[in-house]
């Protein structure tokens, strides 16, 4: 299962819900959800913990727009739009935590 999150972790509990419920699989952070992967932020610990059981991806164009490429936590993989398409194609189903 591919879990897609697009809300800032400090604005909505979408990421929290995802991490609470998602058993395994991949998590893709897009749009404002990429802020969750910022080193030293309130969500960095949660994300590091989640990286133990999920593969975590961030959408790079969103990361670059928000000027946080140089401060992502370890263990997240950056992908471009093509990679996004590949991820969707590679998983049987997607859940968007809107």
């Amino acid at each position: 299962m591919l879990h897609i999150v697009n809300k800032s972790p400090q604005e909505r509990p979408s990421l929290d819900a995802c991490l609470r419920i998602a058993e395994s699989g991949s998590i893709l952070l897009i749009e404002d959800a990429v802020y969750a992967a910022v080193k030293g932020s309130a969500s960095a610990g949660k994300l590091a913990e989640a990286a133990k059981k999920h593969r975590i991806y961030v959408l790079l164009p969103d990361v670059e727009a928000r000027a946080i490429a140089d401060r992502l936590v370890d263990g997240v993989t950056g992908i471009d739009y093509g990679g996004f398409v590949d991820l969707v194609a590679d998983h049987r189903a997607c859940q968007s935590w809107l």
């Binding site: 790079l60 928000r66 000027a67």
Partner: peptide, 14 residues
């Protein structure tokens, strides 16, 4: 999250 508006280095081409 409003503080992110002022973050240096934003690149929105992508």
């Amino acid at each position: 999250d409003g503080v992110w508006q002022l973050k240096k280095g934003q690149q929105t081409k992508g």
